[in-house]
Amino acid sequence: MGRSLNLKELTRETPPLGPGHRLCAGCTASAIVRLVLMAADRPVVVVNATGCLEVATTVYPYTAWNMPWMHNAFENAAATVSGIEAAYRVRMRRGELREPLYFVAFGGDGGTYDIGLQSLSGALERGHRFVYVCYDNEAYMNTGIQRSSSTPLGSWTTTTPVGSVTVGKSTRRKDLTAIISAHRIPYVAQCAISHHMDLMRKARKAFDATGPAFLNILSPCVPGWRIEPSDTVRVSQMAVDTCFWPLFECEEGKLRVTVQPKEKKPVQEYFQIQGRYRHLLRPEHEALVAKMQQEVDQDWQRLKEGRIL
């Protein structure tokens, strides 16, 4: 159903997010937005949580958005889109609108894992028909790389420095995708920018879902991950190849791994291409790396067995 997901053809259309915005060179957030929105075969109304994507695309009097777009605050994108979707439903019912629309909310991991989790949970439980996209760059990047509950164990941020007493973040990341799936919504998936067709197919399923849908998309960040602008897609590919960021979907409660790496690589290969993990390559942190490898292996095994938790 709908138009085909042919990237070559879709990129000839007016881009939903136009050029000229102020995101960093190499930033994956803009590519995520374009891929998600190109997968929609109806007009889309976008809500944006406060964050990099929002501040970099709508500096008044300019906007990079070629579609209806709204920003309210940091922690309330899901509640805001709930209100818009409720207004849409009643206005359709009263005959004030005729055009079928999709609704999507974009938030970073700060606005989703942390400060906006309650708002998101409420919106999912109420069953509003919308897609929530978390572009997950694993820290508060907009305010300058502070840890979030998505920041992985051992990762450097400005609030989890590598010092003589503590070494990066001391706790595991929160498994948000599992938390969202516990809401028993029709569609939940993890995606990566390196696997764009997988991402677009999942976005299409999310738009077509009969209720709320959630996409957690890894979003490598040039300044925050201490990587080159030209390396963001390569780093994303390595996150998938090491199973550090596994790609799967949970459709009507049924879990399926969508991308199986040909050869599962050790996590060191993911760490060594990012400045934020550089310290982990030192011999004194071998035990920490081994622990992280073990966690990745356990998570991957569980997903392959069809269990999200």
Binding site: N72, N76, A79, T80, G83, I84, A87, G122
Partner: peptide, 16 residues
């Protein structure tokens, strides 16, 4: 699920 969300919903709906 909270007044914060209630007002956020109102803002979204009023914009819509």
């Amino acid at each position: 699920e909270s007044e914060h969300s209630a007002m956020s919903i109102c803002v979204g709906a009023a914009a819509a």
